[in-house]
Write a protein that binds this DNA or RNA. Structure first.
Length: 510
RNA sequence: GCGCCGCUAGCUCAAUUGGCAGAGCAACUGACUCUUAAUCAGUAGGUUCUUGGUUCGAUUCCAAGGCGGCGCACCA
């Protein structure tokens, strides 16, 4: 793009850059040797005050700090500014009589968004803020495009932060996440919290003796969930391949192989709609424990949630979008059929398929064409019970038709040993006593194949290799999948899954 | 896929019934040696998402399209 085509603000910056280069300044430095970040500088000054080691002018330790220039207030022969680095914000005080005329004049070439390094002693201003009395400043990288900085004011009476202007266009914030992050420290905090969630899940499972593994994202057959896949092609093998919709079947192969406790934090890909709770690419934790059933892994799931909540938000109580939610153990437990029966006013097992369909139609549940008994039960549950599940609730023992990979319930008819954890009316986790009878598994696959040929494009595929693995012998196993993005949404009070994924899927720009 | 809402300066937003497209912040020029939404004076900055239509005249009305948000559907 030629200079003439650029808007005025962009042109100004390029002209400044050209002028800097003419003056012999390197506008894109190679490195900067800093001694402190904003946080360590502030604490070292506080320590010096405590030790009464400030000099006669009130100066504490000398520091070299570096960061992005985020605020500038010029006052003639002095100026105040803030830089922001990993440790927070740090104020700088520039004086012509301290820096000398030439260095002070060079500040004219700085813009908000520039990366700078400064050096000088720390002191406390009249208003009490720890500040660098800048003796020398170095431009580290010139910003050629203005960042959409807002301004924040602290309300004198309430003490609350008031935001002025700023960067609020959601589309631009998702597309230009770098700018969103650059001007919104609170967005950076969300993703720090996300990293902590993942770290703490690992720490918890490692502590329980689980082995972290990696299984294929590129799969010859997809499975482990009911979803449409992304299809791709391997050129040199000339073979169709799928991006995984789940890692479940691979993890259970590893259980067959003798790893008794395994887990994976995996990206799954599902070729489906995008909304507040769904991104086509998302992150799931799955873990499998040999010799355990779903009751055992339910206990483990509760403990894991407790551990993560404690580590990330310091407790089990939180507010999500204005609603108080408690992750204090034990979580509520309801049986799928009982909860549905209560909502229907009739035992769903005693209702015929036609009767169920009539009920669904009466509730204006759409898209019932070709829905079998399992799907009808699921639709009715989704319409009648799910919206009520705001507090963490384990929904137990689902209809067998819905769960082709789960073991039949040891006492109840027509259901499997399965639980899903719900909170804020969204599914957070899904688990079963894993089906380990290869003959039963084959029958379930065949039933899925029938559904598939009847037009259900989410029906499970028959995975012969998985059946072969199970024939070698799979120990009784409990397995759990947890949607990490949704857990992060909850713990960080974010309304959309896009707010916890750095680069969410969007349509093409323009 | 359907419905509703939105798209105007770098950012956040105005614009009467269809009548010269404006403000705050950012930018630029100047003043100012403890400010913090610094202040004060001045200047500049526009493909009003795109295409087409109606009209003497369209940011405004109509049609189609694009992108986004929300809701619905889909997502066991």
């Amino acid at each position: 793009m030629s200079t003439e085509e650029l808007s005025q603000v962009l042109r100004d910056r390029r002209e400044k850059l050209a002028e800097l280069i003419r003056k012999g300044t390197q506008p894109f430095a190679y490195s900067y040797d800093r001694t402190h970040d904003a946080a360590t500088a502030a604490s070292s000054f506080a320590a010096a005050e405590e030790a009464k080691s400030l000099d006669a002018d009130g100066h504490g330790p000398r520091v070299r700090v570096a960061g992005r220039l985020v605020a500038w207030r010029g006052h003639g022969k002095t100026a105040f500014a803030h830089i922001e680095d990993r440790g927070g914000r740090m104020q700088m005080y520039f004086r012509q009589d301290v820096m000398g005329e030439e260095r002070f004049a060079a500040l004219h070439f700085l813009d908000l968004g520039d990366w700078v390094g400064v050096e000088g002693p720390l002191f406390r201003t009249r208003t009490g803020e720890v500040t660098v009395r800048v003796e020398a400043s170095t431009l580290l990288s010139k910003s050629l495009r203005p960042l959409p900085f807002g301004k924040t004011e602290v309300d004198a009476t309430t003490g609350e932060k008031v935001h002025h202007s700023g960067f609020s266009d959601t589309e631009a914030r998702y597309r230009q996440r770098y700018a969103d992050l650059a001007v919104h420290p609170e967005v950076r905090e969300v993703f720090r919290a996300r990293a902590k969630v993942v770290t703490e899940m690992r720490r918890f499972l490692d502590g329980e003796g689980f082995l972290e593994v990696e299984t294929p994202a590129l799969q010859p057959l997809y499975g482990g969930a009911a979803a449409r896949p992304f299809v791709t092609h391997h050129n040199s093998l000339d073979r169709r391949m799928f991006l995984r919709i789940a890692d479940e079947l691979y993890l259970k192969r590893l259980i067959v192989g003798g790893f008794e406790r395994v887990y994976e934090i995996a990206h799954n890909f599902r070729n489906e709609g995008v909304d507040r709770l769904h991104n086509p690419e998302f992150t799931m934790l799955e873990f499998y424990q040999a010799f355990a059933d779903y009751s055992d892994v339910l206990e483990l799931t509760e403990a894991l949630f407790g551990h993560v909540a404690q580590a990330v938000i310091g407790g089990t109580e939180l507010t999500y979008q204005g609603q108080k939610i408690s992750f204090a153990r034990p979580f509520a437990r309801i049986r799928f059929m009982e909860a549905l029966g209560e909502a229907l006013g009739a035992d769903p097992t005693s209702l015929s398929e036609a009767e169920l369909k009539k009920r669904a139609i009466a509730l204006h549940v759409p898209d019932l064409d070709g829905a079998g008994r399992g799907k009808l039960l699921d639709k009715l549950f989704g319409a009648l019970v799910e919206p009520k599940l705001v507090q963490p609730t384990f929904v137990m023992d689902h209809p067998i038709e819905l769960s082709p990979l789960a073991k039949p319930h040891r006492t109840a008819q027509g259901v499997v040993e399965r639980f899903e954890l719900y909170a804020m009316s969204a599914e957070l986790a899904n688990a079963f006593s894993e089906l380990n009878d290869p003959l039963d598994q084959r029958e379930r696959f065949e039933a899925q194949r029938t559904l598939g040929s009847a037009g259900d494009d989410e029906a499970h595929q028959v995975d012969e290799d998985y059946l072969r693995a199970m024939e070698y012998g799979m120990p009784p196993t409990g397995g759990v999948g947890i949607g990490i993005d949704r857990v992060v949404m909850l713990l960080t009070d974010q309304p959309s899954i896009r707010d916890v994924i750095l680069f969410p899927v969007l349509r093409e720009e323009e």
